[in-house]
């Protein structure tokens, strides 16, 4: 990064404690901010009537970016869920592609306009195609893990869901199978407090999703999902362990959905205003910025420069994507079966 401001002398001990290089910390901030600004622009396009539907990960950027950065791009697999814009960005999705996806443009590499927005998938980048049905991807992750184990490929699969998905049978069937076979999988649950309107206590009789691991004789961890650095520091050793044959991990990131469920949801019907205000104070992006600035990792001017770069990238991406071709009506046909 260009050093636009005067760098404060920082303590070597501090950067060591982060377990992340300066470059990684910069990437972390950049990807979290890019995810946030993209989601904000997407919602604006929705309100302008230019995008039919938005489902976002606002509030979960630290949980997503911190975890995805613990993986090896090009080697490891990601089986995400619909809020995982931040993860996709870390795995190589560009701002332009995110906008093509939102607008269901012909060239959206996720589904070419065939799926709703935020239904990710990119075979080349090892991002597994997903549906709207929750938790099904946990079994796909188990299958990839089984294949990798059979072929002795040293890779890890990270699959995600919200805590709402953990009530489904596929979640439990996947954990059970993965634990029996000690598959290299990170089952990563972003507990954002709500399954649309249902709070945790309506979803499960245990206080933490991570408690479920005990029943499957599986490693587990809980982490503050509003803290990208803590997330990385938790997920990275689990990934290393899984890669080296240590078996699967269930990790619960406690975070918060700062926005309504989707652009069609009105959360004032069920969410106490006070609660939202309290969590807004813990915003993962502003707290990251405050920490690295206070610790003297980056001077303010550098961080401002990243903000400006992201703003411009998002503005340009939206403008560009709006001009891109839509699918032809007849593009609905074809590719029902693979022909080799």
């Amino acid at each position: 990064m260009t050093t636009a401001g005067t760098r404060k002398k920082r303590s070597e001990r501090t950067i060591e404690e982060y377990l992340l290089s300066e470059q990684q910390l910069e990437d972390m901030y950049y990807h979290m901010l890019l995810a946030r600004r993209l989601n904000e622009r997407m919602l604006a396009l929705n309100r302008q009537g230019r995008a039919a539907f938005v489902i976002a990960g606002v509030g979960q950027e630290a949980a997503q970016v911190g975890a995805a950065m613990a993986l090896k791009r090009g080697t490891d697999y990601l089986a995400p869920y619909y809020r995982d814009l931040g993860m996709n960005l870390v795995f190589g999705m560009t701002a332009r592609e995110a906008m093509l996806n939102l607008l269901a443009k012909r060239d959206d590499p996720n589904s070419y306009g065939r799926q709703m927005p935020s239904h990710w998938g990119n075979t080349e980048r090892r991002i597994v195609t997903q549906s709207s049905v929750v938790a099904t991807q946990f079994l796909h992750a188990a299958g990839i893990g089984l294949g990798a184990q059979m072929r002795k490929d040293p890779l890890v699969v990270l699959t995600c869901c919200g805590e709402g998905s953990t009530s489904r049978g596929d979640f439990h069937e996947a954990l059970n199978f993965a634990a029996i076979h000690r598959l290299p999988i990170i089952f990563y649950v972003q507990n954002n407090g709500y399954a649309i309107s249902e709070r945790n206590e309506k979803e499960m009789p245990v206080p933490n999703v991570a408690d479920r691991a005990r029943a499957y004789n599986m490693h587990s961890a809980m982490v503050d999902g509003m803290d990208a650095i803590a997330v990385y520091q938790t997920v990275r050793p689990a990934v290393d362990q899984a890669r080296n044959g240590g078996g699967p991990f269930l990790i619960e990131a406690k975070c918060y959905r700062l926005w309504p469920h989707s652009s069609d949801d009105d959360d004032s019907r069920y969410r106490p205003k006070k609660e939202l205000e309290e969590w807004t104070k813990k915003d993962p992006i502003s707290s990251f910025r405050a920490r690295v600035e206070t610790d003297g990792i980056f001077p303010k001017a550098d961080l401002d420069e990243i903000e400006e770069r992201v703003e411009e990238e998002v503005r340009e991406a939206a403008q560009w994507a709006l001009m891109q071709p839509d699918p032809e009506p007849e593009d609905a046909l074809g590719h029902v079966y693979k022909e080799l």
């Binding site: 597994v128 299958g143 990839i144 089984l146 294949g147 596929d170 069937e173 199978f177």
Partner: peptide
């Protein structure tokens, strides 16, 4: 469901 879902993942792989 796991027999089929795991087969999907393995086939994708």
């Amino acid at each position: 469901s796991s027999i089929i879902g795991i087969s999907i993942g393995a086939a994708h792989y």
